[in-house]
């Protein structure tokens, strides 16, 4: 059980081809010989970048909730809608499944993502030895589910495009939608810059001592 890094090898992130990290090429950023993608044994500044994007995401989530994501105007009466408000409207309409989907996408997923990525980053920095497999699964889930939060922004955009019926009803997007979109993009960037291989670094030395000392 050896990792590519321990053997002085690096796998191309795009095509998977394995290359030797030779001494003469250590100076300049090495590129994959087949598809010319940049090669990094571990993504550079992974932890710092991930924390930075995550912080930006948390900060953007505040205006996303404070400002209305859309304005509904029915017969001249204009009313701002916040993210949470949209959920309550659906709940009162008794469309519970959709209300839950909206609640999950706009509140549960972003908040859980903040917590999950923070936990993963802390666990790497604190060199946690336990539950590496579960943490990898958590990372995979975060990566997979994060983009689905964008559904809220699309709903607002579709409603704004569709409900433009002169004096009867009109829906306009609000500043909160931009802030929420920023939250989604920033947290996606945070997960993308987090290198999951860091979760496993330092694993072999503790578990399979005899094998790693053989070479």
């Amino acid at each position: 059980m050896k990792t590519a890094a321990q053997c002085g090898l690096v796998a191309c992130p795009a095509c998977g081809t394995i290359t030797r990290l030779s001494v003469e090429r250590l100076g300049l950023p090495p590129k994959c010989q087949l598809c010319f993608a940049r090669l990094h044994s571990r993504k550079p500044m992974s932890i710092q970048k991930s924390w930075a994007w995550l912080t930006a995401g948390v900060l953007a989530y505040i205006p996303a909730n404070v400002y209305p994501i859309m304005h509904t105007t029915v017969f001249g009466n204009s009313e701002p809608n916040t993210i949470i408000g949209g959920f309550f409207v659906l709940w009162e309409m008794k469309s519970y499944p959709i209300a839950l989907v909206v609640f999950a996408a706009s509140v549960v997923v972003p908040v859980l993502k903040f917590i999950a990525v923070s936990y993963l980053l802390i666990s790497i920095q604190g060199n946690f030895q336990h539950d590496r497999y579960d943490r990898t699964r958590l990372f995979r889930m975060t990566e997979f589910i994060g983009r689905w939060s964008m559904i809220d922004v699309f709903v607002v955009a579709i409603l704004a495009a569709l409900v433009q019926i002169g004096s009867v009803a009109q829906i306009d997007p609000g500043l909160g939608a931009t802030a929420f979109g920023a939250t989604v993009i920033f947290t996606m960037m945070s997960a993308l810059s987090l290198d999951s291989r860091l979760l496993w670094d330092g694993y072999d030395s503790s578990a399979t001592n005899d094998e790693s000392s053989a070479t």
Binding site: P13, A14, I98, R147, M150, I151, L159
Partner: peptide, 29 residues
């Protein structure tokens, strides 16, 4: 090679299926 890397890089940012579900949520609303 450039096109291939572009496809790999853009995969997480292509969100057609999310837009479709967004349309369904809007329909219900």
């Amino acid at each position: 090679e450039l096109v291939f890397r572009g496809i790999v890089f853009l995969s997480p940012w292509s969100m057609m299926e999310i837009y479709l579900f967004g349309a369904i949520v809007a329909l219900v609303k």
